[in-house]
Design a protein around this nucleic acid. Structure first.
Lengths: 201, 201
DNA sequence: GAATTTATAGAACGTTCGTTCTTTTTTGTC
DNA sequence: GACAAAAAAGAACGAACGTTCTATAAATTC
């Protein structure tokens, strides 16, 4: 493989950052060409169509997300410490990855939820995978004895997703610096509610 | 005022529904003119610029939201019953208002959070007002004795917003019919956690 | 019902869109 | 370094974009 793949990755890096600000449907071949210093046609040749370009951006965002959120958390001890690291990384991943407009996948979920098509399917698939990974991490907490055996894993995954979404909205829209701590407070309360030892309340 | 205001409202009704599917930045004068059966210029004259049109759509969505979510809940008894009605209405408001693509305001929050300007400000303002209204409703629960006096009102508002966002994402993106019940389960657990009588757990 | 204001339509503008060509430059191979 | 392959640029396309004009139709006023 030659240098084509390399520039393609360069393009996608810029594309993910730009999509963070203007959304994935807001991406245009022209604006992206200008940002990367390439010609419209030269850039276009890497994808073949705008839709393929959008799909590539979704997949690139997904990879960046896993690299930023999941992989560092794997160094934590399996169970609650790892889950807590996942949530903590998740809350700040857009900032850490220099995505000034927030998570492009979360935005895309809203953008495309009313527009059937391949992009919507890819976004839905990516978020579905992530939700399953999150539920798995919660299940590991149960196995490790950090959570009670009757913990409703899917329900907890749902609620964690919710408090992350709330944090992202507040930090992006209101620039509320407290939102991360709010989310972690809610997370800890949720965990202690399902904790096995009677350290409730 | 003549019939101009009337057709303007007709346009906005269509615009809100269309924005639900394609987003507020996805609205174009041409597509909206086609949907309403008007000419591009005839429609355009009602707003003067695209940005003014977008602002009008944000405000129209806000009014529709309050009418659908808040006003019916005012018939419930002040305190927890009313708060519960607000949340229940909120969870289904897009469906009830025939907005197939979900809440345009929630989508706009993501669309514009990376793009400063009047539209972003209006969205931020609208959601800020709503958050305050939500916090007030929670405060009324404290006053009514349905929640403990030390209830962290802002924190609870944050968490309720989160579980609604989670529900909207799941129902829109995964078409999960259980998401509403998941959200209500989380809501009830949250309420019982801050309940005054020791009916905890 | 004529006059006047208001609302809508129609045509056209410059720009940007996604896309398709052809041509030039760069890259990798012998 | 010549040669083939791959990558990028350049020019151009029809369509849609937001917007501005001018002209027609409708509603309101007298």
């Amino acid at each position: 493989m030659g240098k084509g793949e390399e520039t393609r990755q360069t393009i996608l890096d810029s594309a993910v950052a730009l999509a963070s600000q203007v959304g994935i449907s807001g991406l245009s071949v022209g604006s992206l060409a200008e940002k990367t210093g390439m010609s419209k046609s030269g850039l276009f040749a890497h994808f073949g169509s705008k839709e393929e370009m959008q799909l590539a951006v979704v997949r690139a965002t997904q990879e960046l997300f896993l690299e930023t959120v999941m992989r560092p958390a794997l160094r934590e001890k399996r169970g609650l410490p790892r889950l807590r690291a996942i949530v903590a990384n998740w809350l700040v991943w857009a900032r850490r990855s220099r995505l000034p407009g927030g998570c492009p996948l979360a935005a895309a979920a809203h953008e495309f939820d009313g527009q059937p098509g391949p992009v919507r399917d890819e976004v839905s698939h990516a978020l579905g995978l992530w939700r399953r990974a999150l539920a798995d991490a919660i299940g590991k907490c149960v196995e490790a004895g950090d959570l009670r055996p009757d913990t409703p894993v899917e329900q907890v995954a749902f609620e964690i997703n919710g408090l992350v979404l709330a944090c992202l909205q507040d930090s992006q829209l209101f620039q509320d610096p407290e939102s991360e701590q709010r989310a972690m407070t809610a997370f800890d309360r949720l965990m202690s509610h399902h904790a096995p030892n009677p350290a409730k309340e």
